[in-house]
Computed example of a mutant assay.
Amino acid sequence: MSGEGAPKLEVDAAGLKVAIIASQWHQTVMDGLLDGARRGLADAGVTDVTELRVPGVFELTVAAARLATAGFDAIVTLGVVIRGGTPHFDYVCEAATTGLTLVSERTGIPVGFGVLTCDNDEQAIARSGLPGSSEDKGHEAATAAVATAVTLSAWSR
């Protein structure tokens, strides 16, 4: 199981301003990821949350880059890419991973990476946080983003 060994993060992130950026592809999986991210932020005490929807995973990067300069303390990105019969999967996954890493690195704003890169629908459902899922990647991404923001808050931007 890919979630084995994951840390149990408990964080007080009250007062943080957080954005969730979610793609629109694979609505059922996205519903689970979004619900998980919302729960993760609520569990951490975050009440100032802005949600933005973009068409797909490729568009997460430009949205995160824009919001990283808009006063948010952390950004949570959510999406899912299912492998198909063409190299499109590889290009989209690489672009999202590299782009979101660069946004975080260049701005100093933590970006929670809740992008599922799966071989099939079953894997995506298993990680979506829906009832019966074995993992809750939306919750994990949100918690990781705010935990990092809290950790870094001792150092000014």
Rank of each mutant, 00 (worst) to 15 (best):
M1D: 15
G3P: 15
G3S: 10
E4P: 04
G5I: 03
A6F: 01
A6I: 03
P7V: 00
E10L: 06
V11M: 00
V11Q: 00
G15L: 10
L16V: 01
L16M: 04
I21H: 11
A22M: 11
S23R: 06
H26D: 13
Q27F: 15
T28E: 12
T28R: 12
V29M: 05
V29Q: 04
M30G: 06
D31F: 13
D31A: 15
L33S: 07
L34Y: 05
G36I: 03
A37S: 11
A37V: 00
R38G: 13
R39E: 11
G40I: 08
L41V: 08
L41E: 13
L41N: 06
A44N: 05
G45Y: 06
V46E: 00
T47W: 10
T47I: 09
D48M: 07
E51T: 10
E51H: 13
P55L: 14
G56E: 14
V57W: 09
F58D: 13
F58K: 06
T61K: 09
V62K: 09
A64N: 04
A65S: 09
A65T: 10
R66S: 01
A68K: 01
T69Q: 08
G71D: 03
F72Q: 05
F72E: 05
D73H: 06
D73P: 05
A74G: 02
A74K: 02
A74I: 00
I75M: 05
V76M: 05
T77E: 03
L78G: 03
G79S: 09
G79L: 08
G79W: 07
V80M: 11
V80I: 15
V81N: 13
V81D: 14
R83H: 08
R83D: 07
G84W: 08
G85C: 07
G85I: 05
H88G: 06
D90P: 04
D90G: 03
Y91H: 15
C93A: 14
C93K: 09
A96Q: 06
T97W: 01
T97R: 05
T101I: 07
L102H: 10
L102N: 09
V103C: 06
E105M: 10
R106A: 15
T107L: 02
T107P: 00
I109S: 00
I109H: 01
G114R: 00
G114L: 04
G114E: 01
L116N: 07
L116C: 09
T117G: 07
T117H: 06
T117P: 07
D119L: 14
N120K: 12
N120G: 09
D121A: 15
D121N: 14
D121G: 15
Q123Y: 11
Q123C: 11
Q123T: 07
I125P: 08
A126P: 02
A126V: 12
A126Y: 08
R127M: 05
R127T: 00
S128P: 07
S128I: 14
G129S: 02
L130Y: 14
L130A: 12
P131R: 12
G132Y: 11
G132P: 14
S134L: 10
S134F: 15
S134Q: 13
K137M: 05
G138C: 04
G138N: 01
H139I: 06
A141E: 02
T143S: 11
T143K: 08
A144S: 03
A144I: 03
A145M: 08
A145F: 03
A145E: 04
A145I: 03
A145R: 00
A149S: 01
V150I: 01
V150D: 00
T151F: 09
T151D: 02
T151R: 06
L152R: 05
W155G: 14
W155C: 12
